[in-house]
């Protein structure tokens, strides 16, 4: 077992079909922001970060057929390594144009790795955060505004249920039910996507 969740093959298999827009938008919705944020966190400018996103996505598109869904190691691991390689390349190129350096072993790899966590761990953390954000975005669209607000104000902002109930004009019990329904939906969303 890998230290990270093994990627379930279904999304991978679906991504092989280039016309499966559902799979691709599902993929992009999660991973585009993840790659972008990781790049930005390494002090890369917006334009550079975007190009990194493009580069990584192109590599995904090119490699998706060759990627063996049955092979050990997760697709996410591969993706995080690819992202890291592209980031390192970018540093190298930036350095080459800014001030040519030579002889060094590979200072750029060190820059690419964060100070606290290895790249792959950070990638996974960011991926997890993005899952929550996507869940929030999807569920806000799907659930009634009242349910979502009841959840947000009590479970995230920590307001008392009684207060939120009177703000929303519903019963206190309904606030408890709404926030639990929302969290259950968040859990289900994350479980489903995490599995891929």
């Amino acid at each position: 077992m890998s230290a990270f969740p093994i990627t379930r093959p279904s999304l991978l298999l679906r991504l092989r079909d280039r016309e499966n827009h559902g799979a691709w938008s599902e993929f992009l919705e999660i991973y585009e922001p993840v790659i972008y944020r990781l790049a930005r966190r390494r002090q890369l400018q917006d334009a550079d970060a975007r190009e990194i996103v493009q580069e990584v996505l192109l590599r995904v598109a090119a490699a998706i057929d060759r990627f063996d869904p049955e092979a050990s190691g997760s697709f996410r691991g591969w993706l995080s390594q690819t992202t890291r390689r592209v980031v390192v390349d970018r540093f190298r190129r930036l350095a080459a144009t800014a001030c040519p350096v030579g002889g060094q072993s590979d200072p750029f790899a060190e820059v690419a790795d964060g100070s606290e966590n290895p790249f792959e761990v950070e990638f996974d953390l960011e991926h997890r955060r993005q899952l929550f954000r996507c869940a929030a975005e999807h569920l806000q669209r799907e659930l009634s505004a009242t349910s979502w607000t009841a959840f947000w104000r009590t479970a995230v902002q920590g307001h008392p249920a009684r207060v939120v109930a009177s703000q929303l004009g519903i019963s206190e019990g309904a606030v408890y039910v709404a926030r639990c329904r929302v969290l259950k939906r968040i859990r289900e969303f994350i479980e489903l996507r995490e599995a891929e």
Binding site: R129, F132, R133, A136, T149, V156, L183, I186, R187
Partner: peptide
């Protein structure tokens, strides 16, 4: 039943952090 206590905590910490930045709009 909705979710394990750890997920409640995680949800809160992630959304709280986001709320202070970009996701302020969510409220």
């Amino acid at each position: 039943l909705a979710a394990a206590p750890a997920l409640w905590t995680e949800t809160r910490s992630i959304f709280e952090a986001d709320e202070s930045t970009r996701h302020a709009t969510a409220t």
